[in-house]
């Protein structure tokens, strides 16, 4: 396997970690819209959901083109065991405070990772990440506003949420022994530097809530560096059904695809043939 192929696969895996987390996060926002307390809350959460799902599709579309995959295969053609979403968002929020803390951690973890690509050598990925960052800025402002507005029992719930979820966000930045994306200049920061950047957001959270943050604990679970999750883990079936409905009625309502997903199940191991006539982002 030559280095170019290796980097393509590493880049694909890391971009899927970002886009799949945004995919689930967009569904979190969509589900929580009706918990908004005012009409501007509804609009804001609908807007954030739209942003996250838009980012996901833009990235998946780019990855499909760059990897020579048929369109929409990364959205509809993967099984749950091939999805790279962050474990932090696996469990549904247990309260409003838990929701606010969870999305704060997810948004900041995503931003800390994306930031490392904004000046990278892959200009298509850099431009996508820059656009994500511009829109994600308002997501973070919104969540910080809600954190500052928590009071009473909500603060205790937020503290519990931090203890339950922070470890998953920190673990997301676990480094492998070799970092080819840093070496090739596609990512300009190491994962340790991304993690340091994320820790600044954790410190800010600590100050806003007025609590001590739990210390990092090394996980004893075997880690899958490709999907950035514990090896063999996957999102709960109920969440997956919400993200990609597979009921008979839902499948009937889907827009037809140019190539059936049933023809392309093994996306990652089959030999990929690049369509030279397909439009492609400038590198």
């Amino acid at each position: 396997m030559n280095e170019k192929t290796l980097n393509n696969e590493n880049l694909l895996a890391e971009m899927l970690c970002i886009s799949d987390t945004k995919w689930v996060l967009g569904h979190w926002y969509a589900k929580i819209i009706l918990n908004g307390r005012t009409v501007p809350d509804f609009s804001s959460m609908a807007g954030m959901s739209q942003d996250e799902l838009g980012h996901t599709r833009a990235m998946l579309n780019y990855l499909e083109q760059s990897q020579g995959l048929p369109e929409h295969q990364l959205e509809f053609g993967r099984g749950v065991e091939q999805v790279h979403n962050m474990e932090l968002l696996d469990d549904a929020p247990k309260s409003w405070a838990d929701f606010v803390v969870s999305v704060y951690l997810a948004e900041n973890a995503l931003w800390s990772m994306q930031e490392a690509y904004v000046e990278g050598s892959n200009r298509a990925v850099a431009n996508l990440c820059k656009k994500f960052a511009e829109e994600g800025y308002f997501h973070r402002i919104y969540i910080e506003g809600w954190l500052a507005a928590l009071e009473g029992d909500e603060l205790a719930q937020a503290t519990k949420s931090v203890h339950d979820r922070l470890a998953h966000a920190r673990q997301w930045f676990t480094e492998s022994t070799s970092d080819n994306l840093l070496g090739s200049g596609e990512r300009t920061m190491s994962l340790a530097q991304c993690r340091d950047h994320f820790e600044q957001a954790v410190q800010k959270l600590s100050e806003t809530l007025g609590i001590e943050m739990p210390a990092s604990i090394e996980s004893t679970q075997e880690w899958d560096f490709v999907r950035r999750r514990a090896t063999g883990s996957r999102m709960p079936a109920r969440l997956w059904e919400y993200v990609v409905p597979t009921s008979e009625v839902a499948e009937m309502a889907r827009r037809p695809l140019a190539v059936s997903v049933k023809d392309n199940i093994d996306l990652f191991n089959e030999k990929k043939v690049k369509d030279e006539t397909a439009p492609f982002f400038d590198q």
């Binding site: 005012t38 501007p40 809350d41 609009s43 804001s44 609908a46 807007g47 954030m48 308002f138 997501h139 402002i141 919104y142 910080e144 506003g145 809600w146 500052a148 507005a149």
Partner: peptide
């Protein structure tokens, strides 16, 4: 106009409502 509990929420509401 927007109504919000603090400046951060007001900025986000303005961004999303008047988009």
């Amino acid at each position: 106009t927007v109504q919000a509990e603090n400046e951060q929420l007001a900025i986000a509401h303005a961004r999303f409502v008047y988009s």
